[in-house]
Design a protein around this nucleic acid. Structure first.
Lengths: 236, 236
DNA sequence: AAGTGGTCTAGACCACCGT
DNA sequence: CGGTGGTCTAGACCACTTC
């Protein structure tokens, strides 16, 4: 069976949609009429329609029918990993400090804890080809049971750091990206003498109950990083 | 039928995976053994497994079985629209110029055309609450048939601009994000006097054949924009 | 009441994988 | 070869929408 019937249905309808023969809001033929059109059973037709639905081309309303969805042309997928990016990869890291601190008001608010709860602060520098390219600060909720192993921390990405606390499957992760001019301290750390913009990536991790478990801020030298995203077109 | 059987299967297996009872690489019970476990038919079991597969929890190998996938904890979804972002929305635009130009080497390479092909260049300023917040430049392949209507261009996002040339469904869209210090010309346009970093977003649109049809570069004042992304782990 | 999609069944044949 | 997943059928009942 090289050409499944459902695949043919998917292809035909998808073509009609992307060629404009079927426009957003239009209704599709009913399942039963597609059955007779393709001379197949209802389950096969449904398999095809469910694929189109997963791909974001159509949706269904019980009792009414299938309809063409509006395309979502401004959704992008980014693969972000503070150690790897479009231009340079991090080939060396330097652990600047690991401290247990009391959060200031802003940090406590961000992690949704009170100001007397302890927080682990990890400061690192990322190098590429001998040059410091990013200054990285992570804040993790302090937990007695989990010892801080400096060796493990040194080369870990943020999700890796917390992987011994929560399943990576349950991770709800949030990114905020913006540009900033560096402060004096950051300039020193990153060997910036002239004018260089920073690309700042704030990464916030939540557990399965949507409680924050960590905040990471990475200050990349603007000339050392480009983030790359691709449009999604499918799903949702 | 309030609690479909397949939904129960999905929930059970998903829980086992995110609780760590099932680890990446582990194999699931076969379809037939799940049939007897849930006392249901094979098609119902398959419906559940296909949902877990779509959600990225498992995958199948014909002839072998189903296996638990590694989680993809560093995939993010961004909704990018040059007119709307986390801090400020564009409430006014100003069309600076619309020109038909010959591309320089870099632009020609980026659009994969030869240097004697004409290109439409559109320059705009984006305002929020009276202040210029971004400088925007678009390059579109010049086509004789499609007239340039300034009114239409003025408030259009990039995909909207090309929506009369290609179906928005076929759009393959690519983003590149980086930080830069502004050049003198940009400083003037954006009323920047002190030190302000720019967040630059390059947007490249491809048609269904993966041929570039346009390049857009938006220079946002770093203090006026934050991009926001959410992890993808489970779909939708 | 008639038509729609949502769920489910109990079979079937196929291609692929291992032993 | 037996076990696995991939495709497909011809029915069934349900809940919902529309008339």
């Amino acid at each position: 069976m090289k050409n499944p019937i459902y695949a043919e249905i998917v292809q035909n309808i998808r073509n009609k949609i992307s060629s404009g023969q079927l426009k957003p809001g239009d209704d599709l033929p009913s399942e039963t009429s597609l059955c007779s059109e393709y001379n197949t059973s209802r389950m096969t037709v449904r398999k095809g329609l469910s694929i189109l639905s997963n791909e974001g081309y159509i949706y269904s309303i019980p009792g009414k029918g299938y309809f063409v969805k509006k395309p979502n042309y401004n959704k992008y997928i980014f693969v972000y990993d503070e150690m790897n990016n479009l231009i340079n990869n991090v080939d060396k890291t330097k652990l600047l400090s690991v401290d247990i601190i009391l959060p200031d008001e802003k940090l406590a608010g961000s992690l949704r804890i009170s100001e007397n709860k302890k927080v682990v602060m990890i400061r690192r520098l990322f190098y590429t080809e001998g040059e410091p390219m990013a200054y990285d600060v992570k804040y993790l909720l302090y937990k007695k049971g989990t010892p801080i192993v400096e060796n493990e921390i040194e080369n870990a990405t943020f999700p890796e750091m917390i992987s011994n606390r929560t399943s990576l499957y349950d991770l709800n992760n949030e990114l905020i990206i913006y540009a900033k001019t560096p402060e004096e301290e950051t300039k020193k750390l990153l060997h910036i003498y002239g004018e260089v913009a920073l690309l700042v990536v704030e990464q916030k991790l939540y557990d399965s109950g949507n409680k924050p478990i960590g905040l990471g801020i990475t200050y990349f030298r603007g000339d050392y990083i480009k983030l790359h995203g691709v449009s999604k077109s499918s799903n949702c």
